[in-house]
């Protein structure tokens, strides 16, 4: 049995029909993607946080959607493939959400992550941060002052737990 019977012509009849577009269609999608890329690079130049986030990540999602739909042909693929990929993305999201109280936050009920908080202090930052970071830095500085007053044996007292 020769192996090239399996090439595109040999799809069994119950397969999903694969829409074949003309090359022009793909070039059109590519042009849209490049235009989106230009927007996503120029957007942050306005230095407005909301615009940066929207252009950076909003457009990334749009681009990903276009690539998945038109280049990977997920629009004509069997439904279960799309579901599979969405479930995997969901698992990543689940991991992120359930882990964030411990990793993303630096204090919680009866615990405080001193070293992560101390990493936020402005002294360690060589260059100044953006406008939005300033408030955080001030807070970090206050934590630091508190931490500095703590004794030397490596376990600074921090009563953050009781605040909750």
């Amino acid at each position: 049995m020769s192996s090239h019977t399996e090439s595109h012509g040999a799809h069994s009849p119950n397969e999903a029909p694969h829409a074949t577009h003309e090359d022009a269609h793909y070039i059109k999608i590519w042009a849209i993607l490049v235009a989106l890329l230009v927007v996503s690079v120029t957007g942050p130049m306005l230095e407005i946080r909301v615009v940066t986030l929207l252009t950076a990540f909003g457009i990334a999602v749009v681009k990903a959607f276009l690539v998945a739909k038109h280049f990977m042909h997920l629009d004509t693929e069997k439904k279960f493939v799309v579901q599979l990929l969405v479930v995997c993305l969901g698992l990543v999201f689940l991991f992120f959400m359930a882990t964030s109280p411990d990793i993303m936050k630096h204090f919680g009920m009866n615990w405080v992550n001193e070293s992560a908080k101390n990493a936020n202090i402005p002294e360690k930052i060589v260059h100044h941060g953006g406008v939005e970071g300033a408030a955080e830095h001030a807070e970090g500085a206050a934590e630091h002052a508190e931490g500095a007053a703590a004794p030397a044996e490596g376990a600074p007292a921090h009563p953050a737990g009781e605040a909750h």
Binding site: V92, F95, F96, T99, S100, I103, M104, K105, H106, A116, A119, N120, P122, K124, I125, V126, H127, H128, G129, G130, E132, G133, E136, H137, G140
Partner: peptide
């Protein structure tokens, strides 16, 4: 990337 985001959102100084 999830691990990166967890740290990134918890550490504003990473923007610098």
């Amino acid at each position: 990337l999830g691990a990166y985001l967890l740290h990134r959102l918890g550490h504003p100084e990473w923007a610098t």
